Each structure stands twice: as structure tokens, then as C-alpha cells.
Amino acid sequence: MEPTLERRMIDIRRHLHRNPELSNEERETQAYLKQVLEEAGFETVKPVAGFGLAVEIVGAAGPSNRKVVIRADIDALPINETSGVPFTSERPGVMHACGHDAHAAMGYAAAVLLDRQKQAFSGTVRLIFQPAEEAEPLGGRRVIEEGLLDDVDAAIGIHVDPYTPAGRVAVGTGPYTLACDTFDVVVSGNSAHAAKPSDGVDALAIACSMVTELQKIVSREIDPYDPLVVSITGIEGGGAYNVIAPEVRLRGTIRSGHEKTRQKAWQRLRQILESLASAHGASVDINLQRGEPAVVNAPEMVDIIQRAGADVVGRENVINAPGWTAADDFAFYSEKCPAVYFRLGIRSDEAGSIYPLHHPRFRVDESALAKGAAVLAGAACIFLKPPFETTRRP
């Protein structure tokens, strides 16, 4: 990538980092990205999925109805930044702690590269700058609902990876992120004096038993090679030293790699909670919210990333790596068409990019971003380079 484009990409990333916006609030982000894309010569930049954008680059190597999507998410997180970078967030309590500012900037650079390489491919690349990856209502779901993948043959997603050395590409086949569901539970007992708990039904003691027993779903009921995580992330109840808590609220998340395991976890969660409540004379209300499914990488698309990655960073720097237990709503894309979600290493002691995702001191080694944008553009070119079958997949 030429220095001028790389510098522009980094400037865009820093602007977005300085001005982060939460999921479903990306008004200024949308307006800014539309402005920089139009300044780069893209005449038709369309608003999509609420505060998202879509832009298309049509190849000039010959007629083709073949299309591939590149997804770049754009939202930030409710985290107060302490990274110390000069372009730190100017919005207290909001931070790009997951690298979506870098994703958007790489999407911009990939669009420019593809526009310059139109003679090398046929068909169309659709860049989607997607809002609301981090929180409901999810932008990925809305992208599908708006039909933005109905005419698409494949999709490509990227995520920065603070666990992999800067500039390396990590990818693998099969489930590559986990499905994400959340649950809220209300345990209802009966209040009593704390000095005489036998007069009541202690919702807090019952809730503590529930937290312990739910862990056995993973440790005792699921094959260790079948990915599943059940985490309780909140417990609220009680308020006085001398009163037995009449009501306790629990919240948590279920992460799973396969739909069958996902269904079993839901079933067992309900059975365990209802049985424990009944055994202790309490009642329980369970609200389970289905989130994004697992991202599943198609083998043929993984091969394209490996080829593009080898061209950009060298074959020795393309890692066949396992997936993450985190979730990503790119999974809705991978449900719709053959897709690949790959990771770009950004870890560097020198750049201080050694903190995990969603950490207030999270940083990005910006020297890796040119490689990520080049892999995105290169993979799209490989997919669209003739000869190929122009009939879309069913």
C-alpha cells in the first residue's frame, strides 16, 4: 500500500477512535465515513441497517453477476478509556476497545484499493460498514433483514487480534466464533427476619445454589471437545442486614459452537433452575434471549484468505488457528452464504498493544492495518477473478 493511502487510513482510524459511538447511535460515524468515501471518489454511498453504509465497486474485467461482501463493523463500547494514546476518546465512558475503528479504516482502504484494481476482476464487491455489532438490536441481523446479502455469493469479515503478533493472519475452518445467548432469571421466595430464616424462603441462598449447579452443564454434561460456556455475570438481591431476601435476580450468557449443544444448554438451564426453585419452595421466572449464531468458516473461503494472506504477508505468517469463544454477528452473514472470518494480529510490545479486547487500555499496532486492508482487497479479487461459474449458489 502506498504511503499516502496508508496515512489516510490511519488518520481515519484515529478520528473514529477519538469520536466513538455506541451501538445503534453511530450517527456521526456514519456521516464521517460517508464523507471520506465520497471524497475518495465513490459516488453512490448508501445508508443501510440504520446507521450503516454500503458502497459497491464493480469490476471491469468482464460481465459477471458474481458478488462478494466485505463487512467492517463500526460501533464502540461503554468503556472509559485509559490507553494513553494521543488520540484517546473524547467521550467519557465510550471507547473503541474492540478495534472497530480499525476495521472501518481498513474497509475504507480496501475499497480504495479495489477501485484502483477494477480491471483485475469481474463482478461486484459490496463494502458494508455495519453498525451495532456489540449490542442488540444487532446490525448483522438487520443487514440480512434488509436483503443486503440476498444477491451475494460470499462474505468476508476481519477482526483485529491482540493475541497474535502484529501483521500475521489467523484463520481456520468450521465454527470460528461462538453463538451468544443471554438470560435473565428472577428467583422469588418469601421474606423473613434474618434471625429466623425458617419463617421464610431465602431467595439468595437458592440463587447461590443455582449459580453452582449451572456450572455442571459444561463440566459434567458436555463433551470437552464441544465448545460451550455458561457464565453468570450478575446477581442482585437483598438490601438489609436483618432481612431474608425475598427476590434475587441473576443474569448471564451461554456461548456455544453447535446448534444441538445450544439447544441442550437452554433445556438444561431451565430444568436446573426450575427444579432447584421447586425443591426449596420458591418460584423462578426465566427469560432467555437468542442472540447471534456461531460464525462458521467455509473451507473454500478459508483457502482464499490463505492465498491472499500469503501474497501480502508471506505464507509463513498465515496461521491455521482455532476460533474464539467470543461472539460476532458476522455469524448472520455466514448463515446466509459461504463466508470467512479471519483475524489480523496486532500484538506488539513496542506499540503497547498487549491488552485484550474490551480492556480500557486496549491499543492497536497501526503498522498492521495496511496488511489487513490488502488481504481484504486481495481476497475479494481472488474470489471475483475469472474464470469462474457466474451462477449464484442457492
Rank of each mutant, 00 (worst) to 15 (best):
F129H: 07
L148A: 07
E213G: 11
R249I: 01
G62E: 02
G174V: 08
S64V: 12
H280S: 07
L37F: 12
L77C: 09
A207M: 00
G372R: 08
V185H: 02
E274K: 12
R290G: 01
T253G: 11
Y225A: 15
T164Y: 02
F330T: 08
E389N: 15
D73S: 11
L288M: 04
T233I: 14
E274D: 11
R220K: 15
H280F: 05
R27W: 03
K385C: 13
E25H: 14
I382S: 02
A326C: 06
A192W: 00
Q35I: 00
R142W: 00
K67I: 02
R8M: 04
E28F: 01
R126Y: 05
H159V: 09
I319M: 10
V375E: 11
R14Y: 04
L16D: 14
D329C: 14
D151E: 15
K385L: 01
D365V: 12
M95G: 04
G174M: 05
G99P: 09
R343F: 13
R13F: 02
D328N: 13
G352Q: 06
E389I: 11
A377S: 15
R13K: 13
Q35H: 10
E26S: 10
L33D: 06
P20S: 03
A377V: 10
I382F: 04
V125L: 05
A110D: 03
H103R: 06
K67Y: 01
A265T: 09
K216D: 13
S122P: 02
G309L: 03
D285T: 13
R393H: 14
S191K: 03
G252H: 06
R255N: 14
S198Q: 10
C208V: 15
R14V: 05
E146A: 10
I235Y: 05
A282G: 03
H15K: 04
P92Q: 03
A339G: 15
G378A: 13
N65E: 12
I382R: 13
G107I: 05
A308H: 02
Q119D: 15
R290Q: 14
V169P: 14
Y163P: 00
L357G: 07
V375K: 14
D101A: 10
L357M: 07
D151N: 14
D150K: 15
A54F: 00
N320Q: 12
H258W: 04
Y341Q: 08
G378H: 12
I206Q: 01
I156L: 15
D303H: 05
A298H: 12
A102P: 04
N19S: 05
R249C: 05
P197E: 00
M9D: 05
E134D: 11
E39T: 12
V211A: 09
V364W: 07
A294T: 14
L250R: 03
Y163T: 15
D161M: 04
P165G: 03
P293N: 08
V313H: 09
L138S: 05
P47N: 02
V248Q: 09
Q263P: 02
D349M: 04
A40F: 08
R141L: 15
A109K: 02
P360R: 12
Q30G: 07
A194W: 00
I222W: 04
N317I: 09
P63E: 15
